[in-house]
């Protein structure tokens, strides 16, 4: 069974909605990068961070209804509504729509705010609203509540394996005929603690991320959320692309054997450890678009979206800042996700 991607709702440093991602690929808009000050034992360091431009949630939900919803869940809601709008689908049977979300770190800003309040003021300082929003399942639950969906609802957090596990879960629900549609959402939130950790690993030494430079640390953190509306593949469907293969934790030999002449989108984000493994793949057709949305555990979901847009537009967009031109896309695209040294997840889009 193949998975059909019917709608996509990205919210990232390029803006909100699929058109913002497309214009970013066309080089017409630059990502929103903000300088953060990170205090360290060696003084303050400046860290450029890709921050989402989240606009338009009040088109779908009144502001008053969002007063207890934190920013991380708000961008998850926005990306979900945008994905449904993009697909142009109305759910006739809301018990047949599943929600499976994934995040590497979850709502980090709210989580640390909640913990800081307990440290500063004791138990009485623990805000129930912060607690409710600090739970990893908060975005998926709020999506189910606001949309009135009564199908299965789950959240997976598995760091570099989050995207693959979320997609496999969606595939399983569809294959078992539990649902007709699945809202697959992935996202991560930047916070000062992650910024501190990034600076500790030499991030921020360059002002720009150079994802195709595998020999230097040019990592810059990012933040965003993206939702895909997915269904079983049926021949008459519109949409972007079909996911025909999801292969998890594959070694270098299998990766090399899997890649023919197809373009390969990799989740390189200026991280040296990733770079060492991608160097060994030794393929000319590797491309990374991470310098459009920054690096975070679920950023590979944005790579998948880039692959989907490329499939729909039948063209491969040039790597940002590369000065190259777009080329015609012949058949399929591979998305290659680094897991750990010389181990990758493989997604094939047709």
């Amino acid at each position: 069974m193949r998975l059909a991607i019917l709608g996509i709702g990205p919210v990232c440093a390029l803006g909100s909605g699929i058109q913002s991602l497309r214009t970013g690929l066309q080089g017409k808009v630059r990502p929103n990068i903000e300088e953060k000050i990170i205090p360290t034992s060696h003084g303050e360091k400046m860290l450029p961070v890709y921050q989402p431009v989240a606009e338009g949630l009040d088109r779908f939900i009144p502001k008053r209804a969002l007063r207890r919803v934190d920013p991380f869940t708000q961008i998850a809601l926005l990306s979900t509504y945008l994905a449904i709008e993009d697909a142009g689908i109305a759910f006739n049977d809301k018990s047949r729509v599943g929600v499976v979300f994934g995040s590497g770190y979850g709502p980090t800003r709210t989580t640390f705010k909640f913990l800081d309040n307990i440290i500063d003021d004791g138990d009485i300082g623990a805000s129930p609203t912060h607690f409710a929003n600090s739970v990893h399942n908060a975005p998926a639950s709020q999506v189910s509540i606001f949309l009135g969906l009564t199908g299965p609802c789950s959240t997976i957090t598995c760091f570099e394996h989050t995207l693959s596990n979320v997609l496999v879960t969606a595939w399983d629900w569809l294959n078992q005929d539990v649902v007709d549609y699945v809202l697959v959402g992935l996202g991560d939130e930047y916070c000062d603690v992650l910024g501190f950790a990034a600076v500790g690993m030499n991030a921020g030494r360059t002002k720009d991320m150079q994802p195709m430079n595998f020999n230097a640390c040019t990592f810059l953190p990012g933040e965003g959320h993206i939702t895909f509306l997915i269904a079983k593949d049926k021949s008459h469907q519109e949409g972007y692309a079909k996911i025909s293969e999801i292969r998890m934790r594959r070694d270098l030999e299998e990766v090399k054997a899997s890649i023919s002449n197809d373009p390969v989108i990799i989740n390189a984000s200026g991280n040296l450890q990733q770079g060492k493994s991608f160097l060994k793949v030794q393929q000319k057709q590797l491309k990374s678009y991470s310098n459009l949305y920054g690096g975070f555990p679920t950023s590979s979901a944005f790579d998948l979206a880039v692959g989907c847009v490329s499939m729909k537009d039948r063209k491969i967009y040039p790597v940002p800042e590369s000065q190259k031109k777009e080329v015609k896309l012949e058949n399929s695209i591979i998305c290659l996700e680094f897991c750990r040294e010389d181990e990758f997840n493989i997604y094939k889009l047709e």
């Binding site: 207890r68 309040n117 500063d120 003021d121 009485i124 300082g125 623990a126 805000s127 129930p128 609203t129």
Partner: peptide, 13 residues
């Protein structure tokens, strides 16, 4: 009622 709990937190903070 949830706001009441938040008010307790605000008074403490």
């Amino acid at each position: 009622s949830l706001d009441a709990v938040e008010l307790v937190v605000i008074l403490k903070k």
